[in-house]
Design a protein around this nucleic acid. Structure first.
Length: 351
DNA sequence: GATATTTGACCTGT
DNA sequence: ACAGGTCAAATATC
């Protein structure tokens, strides 16, 4: 197990290195692509190791909260899609439906690596505990408060997120951003209360991103997270790591930031069901500025099934990479060698 | 002191 | 009137 975690740490380290290099120097797209590929390679090695250990190991590896109850036994869970169907019921609208069970983007061109102090940040996990003594609060203000407006029905994105793999499903899912909880309500017909969060950086950057988290009655291992607004506190729209989700975009123009994660610590890695591990290739999503690459690279990526749109950012679903990984690797290396690119040091830490 | 959560009260849309 | 979203005082932790 340690070797798998070591691989994950290695991937994190490489991603951090790459981010630093991107800031410091102008690296060519070939170099960046190779580095990205190396990071993906490290993740895939970890994934293979984890597959050998079985999924119980993932949960076992994660630290438990000290106040957590008895460790939950690993359980098989329905796929995200099944849960989503359950959640959506017979909703006739077939909204965009993602099938990305273990969605990672690492070492991304233009991605940000969160500062160390935020690497373990999780919604609702920081700050103090909690039970409040009988209130002796002052009487309510006489003057009615102004400016309290219900959220406009604008852009939002609905995401189903698995509970964190800590053996304690009461931990809200960590999506990489730092959130401050500002409310909780018991919702009619729901067994679990709904929590309301806003971006921690609201005061500093005027970031208006919000989310509400609702634990599902039918599957307490799942949370329905609804995001509102974009994170203006982060300049990048590119995720570094994203939790396994089944996402339902509820507006025509979904927020590019809404479900992205900028950081993730190993302890926050979610528990992924054995079904997910076995029935699907663990999928890594890598955003690449493909249009900035030489035509030869674009051709390779397009040939690998990568969608290359008009946008400068195209998402590469690495379930495709996994299938064609060796070919893609060879093609990329071939182009790089052919172009006279110096490969020294790029794959030095890999097989 | 800064920053976090808790939670009752308040506000708003239906 | 009701349900849901937000505010903000109280309180806890670092």
């Amino acid at each position: 197990m340690d070797d798998a975690l070591s691989q994950i740490s290695e991937a994190f380290r490489l991603a951090g290195e790459l981010t630093g290099e991107l800031r410091a120097t102008q690296k060519g797209p070939a170099y960046i692509a190779a580095r990205c590929h190396g990071i993906v390679h490290a993740y895939n090695r970890a994934i293979r190791m984890l597959e050998r250990y079985g999924m119980g190991g993932v949960a076992a590896a994660a630290p438990r909260r000290l106040d957590a109850g008895p460790l939950d036994t690993p359980r098989l869970r329905s796929t995200d899609e099944a849960v989503a169907s359950q959640f959506l019921g017979d909703t006739p609208t077939h909204l965009p439906h993602r099938q990305e069970p273990f969605h990672m983007a690492a070492g991304v061109l233009g991605a940000r690596v969160a500062p160390p102090h935020t690497m373990c940040a999780a919604a609702g996990t920081s700050g103090g505990p909690m039970r409040r003594l009988p209130s002796s609060r002052s009487p309510p203000p006489v003057q009615p408060r102004q400016g309290r407006r219900r959220r406009e029905s604008g852009q939002k994105e609905l995401v189903l997120v698995t509970a964190q793999g800590t053996g304690n499903t009461e931990l809200p899912p960590d999506d990489g951003y730092t959130w401050r909880k500002y409310g909780q309500k018991d919702i009619l017909g729901s067994r679990y209360p709904r929590s309301y969060y806003r971006c921690t950086h609201k005061n500093y950057y005027g970031c208006d991103a919000k989310k509400k988290v609702q634990r599902l009655d039918k599957d307490p291992f799942m949370y329905e997270v609804t995001y509102y607004g974009d994170h203006s506190c982060l300049t990048s729209t590119t995720p570094l790591l994203v939790l396994p989700t089944t996402s339902v975009t509820t507006s025509a123009a979904s927020s590019p930031n809404a479900m992205t994660g900028a950081n993730l610590s190993i302890k926050d890695l979610p528990m992924v069901s054995a079904e997910q591990m076995q029935s699907t290739t663990l999928s890594t999503s890598v955003d690449l500025r493909i249009s900035s690459m030489p035509p030869s690279f674009q051709g390779i990526l397009a040939g690998s099934g990568t969608r290359v749109g008009s946008n400068t950012n195209a998402r590469m679903n690495v379930s495709t990479i996994t299938k064609d990984m060796d070919y893609l690797t060879l093609d990329l290396m071939d182009v790089m060698f052919s172009s006279g690119y110096n490969m020294d040091g790029i794959f030095s830490s890999y097989d």
